[in-house]
Computed example of a mutant assay.
Amino acid sequence: MNTLPNDHAARTARAALALDGLSVGDALGETCFRTHNWEAIQEDPHATTRGPWPFTDDTAMALGIYETLAECGGIDQDRLALRFAARYTAQPWRGYGAGAHRLLEQIGSGTDWRYAAERVFPGGSYGNGSAMRVAPLAGYFAESDYAEVAHQARLSAGVTHAHPEGLAGAVATAVAGAYAWKNRDARGDTATKRGLFDAVLAHTPPSDVRRGIERAATFSFDLSAEPHVRLLDYNFATRPFDVSIEPVVRLLGNGSRISCQDTVPFCLWVAALHLDDYRTAIVQTIRAAGDIDTNCAIVGGIVALATGRAGIPADWLTDREELVV
C-alpha cells in the first residue's frame, strides 16, 4: 500500500488545475473540427461556439493519470494501465487512435500492458499521446526536483509509449509544466520564458524531440534571427494575432504527423511565448491547425500552471463538458 505524501492535498489541487487547463484546451480545440469555430476564432479570439464542448481521449487519459496520482501519490504503471482501459471501455468513442483502440481493448480484456504494448507497437509508440495527457503529473510533482518529474513522466508514458521519442515527449512536456508552476510569479518576464527551454533541455534525453526543442529555443529567442521568426520583438499585448504562424509550423511542425517529434517542440514554443496569457496561447495554437485538440491540451496544461485557474477564461471552463472523476 502506497504512503501518500503529507502535502498530497496540495499536490492533487495542482494536478486538478493542470487538468482544467488541459481539458479546456482539448475540448475547445476539438470544436474546430466539428464547427466553423476555427474560422471564427481567426476573426475574433473571443468568438467560440456554444458549449458543452465534449472532451476527447486526451482528457480521458489525463483523467486516468489524475486518478492514479490521487490514489497512489505517484505513477503505479499497473494501476494506470487499468485506469486507461476502464475509461476506454466506458467511452471508446472519445477519439482514440487505431493503435490505442487495439491496445486498450487488450488491456481491458486482461492482457498485461507490457505484452500488449509491444504487440501493438513493436519497439514502442512515439505518438503524441504520451505528451497530451501528462499535465496533471506535472502539477502533482511541480514542487519536486525536475529529475523526479522526469522519472514519473517516463513511468506514465511507458505504459503505452515506450519508444524513446514517446518517453522524451512526455518528459519535456512534464518538465515544462513544472517549470511554469515554479516560475508563475515571474511568468511575464522574457527571461522566465527563455528559461523554460533551459529547464526542459536539461532533462530531455537525446532524441528528435530534443532537437526540435533546441531549434525552437534558438529561433524563438534569438533577436538576430530572420524577421519572420523574431516574434519576441512583436508587441503581442496590443496585436497578439497579427503574426503569421506558418514559418513556425514549417520549422517545428503542428502535430499533423501525430508524433511527439512533430508536436512537442511547437507546443513548448507557444507555451513559452505566452506563458502569462492562457487565452492567447490557446488561440495561437488553434491558428496553427494540425492536431488542434492535442496541441491545445499540451499548451493549456502548461500555461494554466503559470496563470492559475483565474487565467482560464471563465466562459471556457463553463462551456467545457463537465469532468467526472
Results as ranks from 00 to 15, higher is better:
residue 1 M to D: 08
residue 1 M to E: 07
residue 3 T to Q: 05
residue 4 L to S: 03
residue 11 R to K: 12
residue 13 A to L: 08
residue 13 A to W: 04
residue 14 R to V: 13
residue 15 A to E: 04
residue 23 S to C: 14
residue 23 S to V: 09
residue 25 G to P: 07
residue 26 D to S: 08
residue 29 G to D: 04
residue 29 G to K: 02
residue 30 E to A: 15
residue 32 C to H: 01
residue 40 A to G: 10
residue 40 A to I: 05
residue 43 E to W: 06
residue 49 T to G: 12
residue 52 P to K: 02
residue 53 W to S: 01
residue 55 F to V: 11
residue 60 A to R: 05
residue 60 A to G: 11
residue 62 A to S: 03
residue 65 I to G: 06
residue 66 Y to L: 10
residue 69 L to D: 06
residue 70 A to F: 06
residue 71 E to G: 02
residue 72 C to P: 00
residue 76 D to M: 09
residue 77 Q to L: 01
residue 78 D to Q: 14
residue 81 A to K: 14
residue 83 R to I: 04
residue 83 R to F: 08
residue 84 F to E: 08
residue 85 A to L: 13
residue 85 A to Q: 09
residue 89 T to Q: 04
residue 90 A to K: 15
residue 96 Y to M: 04
residue 98 A to R: 01
residue 98 A to M: 05
residue 99 G to F: 10
residue 99 G to A: 08
residue 101 H to Y: 00
residue 102 R to H: 14
residue 104 L to T: 08
residue 105 E to L: 13
residue 116 A to M: 09
residue 120 V to Q: 14
residue 125 S to R: 04
residue 127 G to Y: 15
residue 138 A to C: 05
residue 138 A to N: 03
residue 139 G to W: 13
residue 144 S to H: 14
residue 147 A to E: 15
residue 149 V to Q: 13
residue 150 A to M: 13
residue 157 A to H: 09
residue 161 H to S: 03
residue 162 A to P: 10
residue 164 P to E: 03
residue 164 P to Q: 02
residue 164 P to T: 01
residue 165 E to S: 15
residue 167 L to N: 00
residue 167 L to V: 05
residue 168 A to E: 08
residue 171 V to Y: 11
residue 176 A to R: 03
residue 179 Y to N: 12
residue 180 A to P: 02
residue 180 A to Y: 01
residue 192 T to V: 14
residue 193 K to R: 15
residue 194 R to W: 00
residue 195 G to E: 07
residue 195 G to D: 03
residue 198 D to S: 10
residue 198 D to M: 07
residue 201 L to I: 06
residue 203 H to T: 13
residue 206 P to C: 10
residue 207 S to G: 09
residue 212 G to Y: 13
residue 213 I to M: 08
residue 214 E to N: 07
residue 215 R to A: 14
residue 219 F to D: 05
residue 223 L to A: 06
residue 236 F to W: 14
residue 236 F to R: 05
residue 237 A to Q: 07
residue 238 T to R: 11
residue 238 T to G: 00
residue 239 R to E: 15
residue 241 F to H: 15
residue 243 V to S: 08
residue 249 V to F: 11
residue 250 R to A: 08
residue 252 L to M: 06
residue 255 G to L: 05
residue 255 G to M: 02
residue 262 D to A: 10
residue 262 D to V: 06
residue 266 F to R: 13
residue 267 C to V: 06
residue 267 C to G: 07
residue 268 L to I: 00
residue 271 A to E: 02
residue 271 A to M: 13
residue 272 A to R: 04
residue 273 L to N: 13
residue 274 H to Q: 11
residue 275 L to D: 04
residue 277 D to F: 00
residue 277 D to G: 03
residue 279 R to P: 12
residue 286 I to E: 00
residue 293 D to F: 04
residue 297 A to F: 04
residue 302 I to Y: 00
residue 303 V to H: 00
residue 306 A to F: 04
residue 310 A to K: 10
residue 316 W to F: 06
residue 317 L to Y: 01
residue 323 L to K: 04
